[in-house]
Amino acid sequence: MSELREELKEKIIEQLNLEDVAVADIADDDSLFGDGLGLDSIDALELIVMLDKDYGIKLSDPKEGRKIFESIGVMADYIAEHRTK
């Protein structure tokens, strides 16, 4: 599980071009949106594609993403449970 969490942190930094953020800067329960990492709705759409492409999880409603992307911890749990690849 912790491996998946680290993997997600790396991917988010790379995919969303967070140049000034390091893996160590993101705690598992930091909120990704708003006051935490400061991600926005465009990032949420990027993450939805990442779920599909890398883990075979398809979301049809961007609103679902908001809950799943609450934090690295929540995201990792969701992926572990629903992944098809």
Binding site: Q15, I42, L45, E46, V49, D52, K53
Partner: peptide
């Protein structure tokens, strides 16, 4: 497939 919105926006 697997397109992301950033470059489109």
């Amino acid at each position: 497939e697997y397109l992301t919105p950033t470059s489109f926006i």
